[in-house]
Design a protein around this nucleic acid. Structure first.
Lengths: 249, 249
DNA sequence: ACTTTTTATTGATCCAGGTCAATGCGCCTT
DNA sequence: AAGGCGCATTGACCTGGATCAATAAAAAGT
């Protein structure tokens, strides 16, 4: 029931939010998804020493925006974030949703200024990586540097796929693609690929996919009528993953 | 006249294509736009030694595609390229156009496999940077590493803006934004911000902006009727840059 | 110089998905 | 448990830009 009401932040147990300031990377359940992957023991200790942990945010709270002075990139530790590109006229594009182990703020490195905003979608925590220190360390720890490049490259390739989605896919294809992307990422984190809670609103989903809320709502209803999914508020079950894959185009 | 017929590859003089295998980074006119920026003399020499130059391509030729084994990232030296994300059903999204000094192929780093295709839009040359060697050197040359991260970050932030464009802008805003992006990049390279040749077809532009060819064609005509631009085949003049900026949203 | 092919323009029509409007439902507050 | 608020659903209608179709005009080939 607490699951249905979305009271329990997703992944809380995975990241052990309650004691996170005490948890070193080595002990963190996110290790295999996170930056330190492949680092040797004493390199890991070095990295550990620069990470500022236990920054905690509640639903709707901003992690940073274009007005925040750039200092750090972040790794999601628990919960979920959305990032947006904001225009002066108030329009905004949700550029991504971020789950534990995923990086936020890397598009700020070049200009040394945040180019987008990040908001928590539920009670969430992050590990903060001060960029200047990260840069210092990556000189002496080649694997860290490799990992940073890999992270950036991965996000880049994800964004190219999103450009394809926004520019070429139909509404149906967009939503199917989105649901399967969530499914894959839940699975990577040890959760069910079939059953999970949507941490974002219909509005956020619609915005991200370049659709109207109403279109997303209608598609959810249609997918449900066709037996592809079962959705009740934010609780989602993927009933026919193969069929959804076909719909992705 | 040769300019109108687009016989002369753009930027040829700038990059000195004819002798490019002899030109070291230090002597290259692209230096201030390119990777070696900020490197010390003997670091520069090291970098120089790993760069494979004078890879030359003609209009329509492929630099790489998803089938090509990953080995290198590339810097455009002269000419112009487009990159695409390709779907199995034949649909493709033009994810970007690349001018001298700009990087291609960085989204391949993470998977060590090209995620997109790159094609020359005219006679073009690239500097090839074998990734394994680049990685070796950046351990000993911190500035090189910083530069790589900056490049990736810059592309990332550009892609987020493209996501905003694709998801939220109207056809008019899309085209105005695109024209000004070209203008800015020509200017950065020492060319006129007002007069230049489009190296890409209407189809490529339309595809990139998530529009139909006909829409792009109609908008060019309308912008011309309204005195914003003058366009004849591929020769473009921006007559009212301020007004175009207003149209970007 | 002539033919073929490709690319661009322009007009007419259509439709996927947006917008507007009404209603419903969950959830918070007191 | 009643009222209020924000989010979600559903229906009716509309529209921006897609698609279809017909030329036209470059560019490429011979």
């Amino acid at each position: 029931m607490s699951q249905l009401n979305n009271v329990t932040p997703l992944f809380r147990d995975l990241a052990k939010v309650e004691h996170d300031h005490q948890i070193a990377c080595q002990e963190c359940a996110l290790y295999r998804l996170c930056l330190p992957l492949g680092l040797h023991n004493n390199d890991l200790a070095k990295l550990d020493s620069i990470i500022e942990r236990s920054k905690s945010l509640t639903r709707g709270q901003s992690l940073f925006s274009a007005e925040t002075p750039f200092k750090s990139v972040f790794v999601v530790r628990s919960g979920c974030f959305k990032t947006t590109v904001d225009a002066v006229d108030g329009r905004e594009q949700v550029t991504g949703f971020y789950f534990p182990g995923e990086f936020i703020g890397m598009d700020a490195i070049y200009q040394q200024a945040y180019q987008s905003s990040a908001k928590a979608l539920e009670t969430s925590t992050v590990c903060e990586l001060p960029y200047d220190k990260l840069q210092q360390f990556s000189t002496t720890i080649p694997q860290l540097q490799t990992q940073m490049l890999n992270r950036l490259s991965k996000e880049l390739s994800g964004d190219k796929n999103l450009m394809f989605l926004l520019g070429k896919k139909t509404a149906e294809e967009k939503l199917a693609t989105f649901l399967l992307s969530l499914s894959r990422r839940f699975q990577e984190r040890g959760f069910s690929a079939r059953d999970f809670q949507l941490s974002m609103s219909r509005g956020d989903i619609a915005n991200h996919l370049g659709l109207a809320i109403e279109t997303v709502s209608r598609l959810f209803s249609r997918f449900q009528d066709e037996g592809l999914i079962r959705i009740h508020n934010k609780a989602l079950t993927l009933l026919d993953i193969d069929k959804l894959k076909q719909l992705c185009g």
